[in-house]
């Protein structure tokens, strides 16, 4: 007999696949560029910048997807969706880590001290790094064992850092673009919506007990 509320078997694999696709697309683009056609424009004429931007955007999208899980659960009461929170969060972290590693490698010659200097000098870099550093302890404590070791309440308090990560990442994106561009504001608006949804009172399960009729 199936476990009550067990997620459908396709749910997690589908989430993993969707999260991985942009990364696989980048890998395919680089494989083409390096081994098949050095003039390929699949990753634009500036594949380094394209890769860097795509990794960052996917990290932000997955972070927002992670933050959407709880509000969607409250709205739908569909318990299985909660099983996506951890994998989506870890994928967001993975893309953020690749985004940062790519920046370190291509722009800063792997110099952590240069990263630190840039972060202190440029708010744009500061907020990006803040977002990543907020995600780091969450990824590190994403196991059942870590929940037990920390205790549920402390673990939950720590994991509220994801809000800080979301806000910092949105500011990082807003500071990135030139002129007035709507895209980063759309992401920020979505994020604000998802954070505000948490302030609404949590609707309880409908009471199944028969109501008095008179």
């Amino acid at each position: 007999m199936a476990r009550l509320n067990a997620p459908p078997v396709w749910l997690k694999p589908a989430a993993h696949l969707l999260a991985a696709l942009p990364g696989l697309w980048l890998l395919a683009g680089w494989a083409e560029l390096l081994w098949l056609d050095p003039a390929s424009l699949r990753l634009s004429a500036d594949p380094v910048a394209h890769t860097h931007n795509a990794l960052g955007l996917q990290a932000l999208r997955l972070l927002i997807a992670t933050l959407a899980v709880t509000p969607l659960f409250r709205l739908s009461r569909w318990t299985p969706i909660m099983s996506l929170r951890r994998p989506l969060g870890l994928w967001a972290f993975a893309y953020a880590a690749l985004h940062l590693a790519f920046y370190l490698a291509m722009e800063l010659d792997f110099s952590l001290s240069a990263l630190w200097r840039e972060a202190l000098k440029k708010p744009f870099i500061f907020f990006g790094l803040a977002a990543f550093l907020s995600l780091l302890p969450l990824a590190a404590t994403s196991t059942r064992r870590a929940i037990k070791a920390l205790g549920g309440r402390r673990w939950q308090a720590l994991h509220r850092l994801v809000y800080v990560a979301g806000i910092a990442a949105s500011i990082h994106f807003i500071l990135r673009v030139k002129g007035f561009q709507p895209e980063p504001y759309l992401y920020a608006a979505l994020l604000i919506l998802l954070l505000a949804a948490r302030l609404l009172p949590n609707r309880k399960r409908p009471n199944r007990a028969p109501q008095p009729t008179a």
Binding site: A39, A45, D46, G179, Q181
Partner: peptide, 20 residues
């Protein structure tokens, strides 16, 4: 710079915000 790159990677916001 190859012609294809010169003509496919442009900042010209009158036609949109992406390079392409």
């Amino acid at each position: 710079t190859p012609l294809k790159a010169v003509t496919s990677y442009n900042n010209f916001y009158e036609f949109g915000l992406d390079k392409s």
